[in-house]
Design a protein around this nucleic acid. Structure first.
Lengths: 156, 156
DNA sequence: CTTGAAAGAGACACGTC
DNA sequence: GACGTGTCTCTTTCAAG
């Protein structure tokens, strides 16, 4: 599953996580490699899937999404069918940005964005909780984003 | 704070969130716009900060990071000084990918990545909890990632 | 892995409608 | 805004050391 990365690969990853639109020429200069070698390494990182893709990182607030919330969800009954139907719901809604299975007393953690409180409430009640298998929903609103990185700590 | 986006802007954002390395020429074809108009819109989205940046999205597991965890933290005492020193710690460690202030009974939610359980434990004890203002740490390990999108739901 | 070179494509600024 | 043109830079691929 995991891919062996040497010092140079890690330098490339670090740089491309910070600036994915850097040209191959500038990148090669920054990490001290020839452009052709740099390009072949970058392509290899994409082919092996270490780099999943390149993407524009959008500022939610500037795009008009004021609400960010974490929601702990329990299903009842919790079985293969309710689980599968819940997850297919989750996949459908773009408001659900992330969904994790956790250890502990809750079945799922969701990260949800919405235009405002109103549309958040509507989404939870009219869309998500229409899924009758949900037994409890525990919302924590995000009041402040203190840190947000897409970067993976390559060194650690 | 928020920026007015018309239908075309939203189409551009949607596309660039899915593929940030698409050429301006291909992008303009996809959304039905002339290349120059498309380019000026994209640049405008970057200048207004709607697009924060372009970045390579890295697969944590392939980069050798097996552990993903959410941690609820309380500070004690909670005041301006402890808060500030805690947040400066959080900024320092690349293991902390995200940090939010939440409503509810906990002061902060952290998203943390690590190479394995061992290094996760070491990070919490040796690095994070060295910060003596932390009164409680509640870890939830991620067992499965059911959904993960960098995309912001532009339509909602 | 590096260097060098050649060809193709896209970015970008211009003027025009 | 859209469109067209031109220039300039980067990418990409090839070779050879």
């Amino acid at each position: 599953m995991s891919v062996v990365l040497d010092r140079t690969d890690r330098a490339i990853l670090k740089e491309l996580q910070e600036d994915g639109s850097i040209s191959n020429l500038d990148l090669s200069k920054k990490i001290g490699l020839s452009p052709s070698a740099c390009l072949s390494r970058t392509k290899n990182l994409v082919e092996t899937g270490v780099i999943q893709k390149f993407a524009a990182i959008v500022d939610e607030k500037k795009a008009g999404l004021e609400v960010l919330a974490f929601v702990l969800v329990n299903l009842s009954p919790l079985n293969r069918d309710t689980l599968r139907s819940f997850l297919s719901e989750v996949q459908k809604y773009p408001q659900v940005q992330e969904c994790y299975t956790l250890t502990g007393s809750h079945d799922y953690l969701l990260k949800i964005v919405a235009k405002d409180i109103e549309s958040y409430k509507n989404f939870i009640i009219d869309s998500l909780m229409q899924n009758t298998t949900i037994s409890s929903v525990e919302t924590s609103m995000v009041m402040g984003i203190e840190k947000r990185t897409v970067n993976v700590p390559i060194d650690a």
